[in-house]
Structure formats: structure tokens, C-alpha cells
């Protein structure tokens, strides 16, 4: 059985691996951080959050300061889908952000049965008001 863990990641409970939901690539052991099986790019935040004020003229520009923060972009090595971003202080080790308890996950899903598509959750519908 496979559990859909994020927009782009699932865990195969039998093989205990992280997999890419876009291209089915096996990313790595679910006993470790999925990030270990991804590629990383150290992105200058000004490329994503462009300066609105002229950087030649001003100290603050609406862009993050690239000396203060970087965007770590994690992508699938097979399909290039951007699986995760992490706004990180330069040199700060990337976080082991999702560490599931696999035996507990197996026990929980044994009772549920596999879900091929994620549950999105309730939509907020416009109130039609009171009428007769």
C-alpha cells in the first residue's frame, strides 16, 4: 500500500521507500529524510522575489537579502519537479522535516485501505441565503 504524504511524495509501506508521485521515481528509504534522495539548488532569493525598488539606489528593495537567507530548492532527480523549498540561513543544515513512524503508519493504514487520490477537504460554498 502507498500513502500520499505530500503534494509530490508518497511512501510505499511494503518497500518502505519515499517515491515521487509525478514520475514514480524511488527517492530513497522512508527511514531517512526524503531530501537525501533529491537534488538541491542554492537559490539567490532575489531571483524569486524580484526587487521592486532599484537595488542601485536602496538598501531595502522588497527582495530578501541574499547574505541573510537563501532558498534551498529540492527537486526530483528524475522529473525535476520541485518537491520542497526551505528558506535557510546560510550554512544552516537542511531540516529533517518529515520523519514518519513507519510501523505506526502501517498499522493506521491497515485499517483504512489505500487511497489513490488525496482527500482535498471541504470546499467553502457560497451561502444561497434564506428563501421561500
Amino acid at each position: 500500500m502507498k500513502v500520499l504524504m505530500t503534494e509530490y511524495l508518497r511512501i510505499d509501506l511494503e518497500t518502505e521507500n519515499w517515491e515521487c508521485r509525478v514520475c514514480d521515481h524511488v527517492i530513497g528509504s522512508a527511514k531517512k529524510s526524503y531530501k537525501e534522495g533529491l537534488l538541491v539548488n542554492n537559490r539567490d532569493p532575489r531571483e524569486i522575489h524580484p526587487p521592486i525598488l532599484d537595488p542601485e539606489k536602496y538598501r531595502f528593495t522588497f527582495s530578501p537579502d541574499p547574505e541573510w537567507v537563501r532558498i534551498l530548492e529540492f527537486c526530483c532527480p528524475s522529473c525535476g519537479t520541485q518537491v520542497e523549498t526551505e528558506y535557510a540561513i546560510p550554512g544552516h543544515p537542511p531540516l529533517y522535516d518529515m520523519e514518519p513512524d513507519l510501523p505506526a503508519l502501517k498499522a493506521q493504514w491497515a485499517k483504512r485501505g489505500e487511497q489513490k487520490t488525496p482527500v482535498v477537504g471541504p470546499a467553502v460554498a457560497a451561502d444561497k441565503g434564506h428563501g421561500h
Binding site: T6, E7, Y8, P45, I48, H49, P50, L53, Y58, F60, T61, F62, S63, P64, D65, W68, V69, I71, F74, T81, Q82, V83, E84, T85, E86, Y87
Partner: peptide
């Protein structure tokens, strides 16, 4: 949040940028 965004993005999305005073 004028130098570092005060939030994080989700599942590959980006956070906001920064917001200074002019």
C-alpha cells in the same frame, strides 16, 4: 520581514518576499 521572509512555503511553493518601509 524586511530582510528575511517571516514565513515558509509549502510542498515546493515559495514564501513571500520582503517588505520594507519607504
Amino acid at each position: 520581514g524586511a530582510k528575511i521572509p517571516p514565513i515558509q512555503g509549502l510542498f515546493g511553493g515559495y514564501a513571500c518576499g520582503c517588505y520594507p518601509l519607504s
